[in-house]
Each structure stands twice: as C-alpha cells, then as structure tokens.
C-alpha cells in the first residue's frame, strides 16, 4: 500500500480511561507469560509502534530499566502485535488452554 497519512487525527484528542475498559473484561491469568520479547535490544532501537497499536496497552517501554514491559495479563489475544511488530521480535503463543481472555458478551 502506498498510503501516506499525515498522522491525520481530526477529532479533538479524547482522554481514554483504558483501565476502565479493560476492567470490563474477564481474564483468567496464565501462570506463565504467553508473550515474550525475543531481544530487548531490538526494542531499544525500535520506534516501538506496539506501544500505540496494541488495543490493550500490553507493551510499555520502561525507560529507566531499558526494557519492554509486557503486561500479558491484559492481552486480548487479537494477534496484531504478532503481525505488526516491525522486527518480528515478539514470541507470540496462545495462552495455556482455558486461560487468558474470556468475554462476557463477545
């Protein structure tokens, strides 16, 4: 695609309480993370679009620690990061059967 958007936000910026949104979802946390950063150094050098495109803000760069923190507990398992990480630097698996997200409506 040859699309060039100029970061075209038109609507006035809205403040979103993502915590409140995520709070509506039912999760059963897996015992071990199903998402892993393959190489933190790659993230350090990256523009990290995952911090914006992830619908659950799973990825947050910890500047102080110099590492990407992965809040896998809130993952909606949509798979966007699996496809959209510019460096395929995310080891993406399904959470253990029965764990992870379980919607109430869907």
């Amino acid at each position: 695609m040859s699309v060039q958007t100029q970061n075209g936000k038109q609507a006035a910026p809205v403040t979103v309480n993502l915590e409140a949104k995520l709070f509506t979802i039912r999760y059963k946390a897996d015992t071990a993370p199903h998402l892993a950063i393959r190489d933190q150094a790659v993230c350090a050098a990256c523009e990290r679009p995952c911090e914006t495109f992830c619908p659950a803000r799973v990825y947050e760069w910890q500047a102080g620690e110099g590492r990407m923190h992965v809040a896998f507990e809130n993952c909606l398992e949509c798979g966007t990061c699996r496809i959209a990480c510019p460096h395929q630097n995310i080891d993406w698996r399904y959470p253990t059967g029965g764990t992870g997200i379980a919607y109430r409506y869907g």
Binding site: M1, V3, T5, N7, G8, K9, P13, V14, V16, L18, K21, P49, T52, F53, C54, P55, R57, T80, I83, A84, P86
Partner: peptide
C-alpha cells in the same frame, strides 16, 4: 487496516 494503524500512530481505544 493494521497497516494503516501502524503508520497512523492512533491508538485503537482512542
């Protein structure tokens, strides 16, 4: 489109 989302810098929940 995920491709557009990557470029736009718009957060899905916003």
């Amino acid at each position: 489109m995920v491709s557009d989302l990557m470029r736009s810098g718009v957060k899905p929940y916003e």
